[in-house]
Simulated scan of single mutants.
Amino acid sequence: MKETIINWLCRIEKRETVPNEIVAFNFGLFEQDKGYCVYLTGSKQYDATDDDWACNVDFEPKEKYIEFSSEECAEMTWEDFQISVKEIVTEYIGNAHSESIFRIGERVVTIGFDDGELEKIQWKQKTDSDLQLLASSGLEEKKTSPFRKGVKWLKQLLGME
C-alpha cells in the first residue's frame, strides 16, 4: 500500500500544475465493495471550523483516484485504513522537497472519509541538520532537480533502489 500511494503522489507531483490560488488539499477516503478508495482534491477555500470547504473542488489531478482492493486492505477497518493512509501521506509530505505542491506557501492538507470528520495532516519540516545529514548520507545526488532528489530519496527509503 505504501509503495502504491507514494508512486501515485510522485506521478501527481510530476504531471500536475496546481494553481497558486489553491490553499488546501484533501485526501478523501471512501469504502467500496471490496476495499477502499483514496482521492485527492484541492480548494481555493479552507475553513478550520467547517469541513464543507472540502466540497469546493477547484483542483483535481488527472489521476484523482487510487483504489485498494487487496485482501490486506479489504480486511482493514475503516479506522485502520485512514490511520495507515495518513501515516504514509504525512511521511511523504514531510520528506518532500520544499517546492512540493503540498508544501508551497501555507497550504493545508487534510484527510478523512467522505461521511466523517477531516483530520489536518501535520508534518515535521526538515531542519538544516536533517538536510546536512541527508546530503552526507549520499542519498541525494548533486545536479539533480529537487523533484528527482525527493523521488530518489523516497525510493531509497522504501527499498525500491
Rank of each mutant, 00 (worst) to 15 (best):
I83F: 01
K86A: 12
R103F: 00
K44C: 08
K64V: 12
L29Q: 07
D128N: 10
E87W: 03
G138F: 09
A48F: 04
N20W: 01
S43N: 07
P19C: 07
E117F: 12
S69L: 06
K143H: 08
L158F: 08
Q122Y: 05
P146S: 08
I6W: 13
K152T: 13
T77A: 12
I93K: 00
F27Y: 14
N95M: 02
I5D: 04
S69I: 14
S69D: 14
S137W: 05
S84N: 08
E63K: 11
F30I: 08
F59V: 05
K120I: 07
I22K: 03
K126F: 00
I83M: 01
L154F: 12
E67Y: 15
L118A: 03
G35K: 05
A24Q: 08
Y92H: 03
Y92F: 15
E117Q: 11
Y39W: 14
C10I: 11
D33L: 13
D33V: 14
F81D: 07
V151I: 06
Y39Q: 10
W78K: 15
D58C: 13
E119S: 13
F113L: 08
T41N: 14
D50F: 11
Q122P: 00
D52A: 07
T77C: 10
G28M: 06
L118P: 00
G112H: 07
I101T: 03
K155H: 11
I121A: 04
S69Q: 12
D47L: 06
D51P: 02
V85R: 00
V108T: 15
G28P: 02
I6H: 06
T49P: 00
G116W: 05
S136I: 14
W78Y: 12
E141D: 08
I88W: 00
F102T: 02
E99I: 07
N56M: 11
Y92Q: 04
Y36K: 03
F147K: 01
I93E: 00
L29M: 10
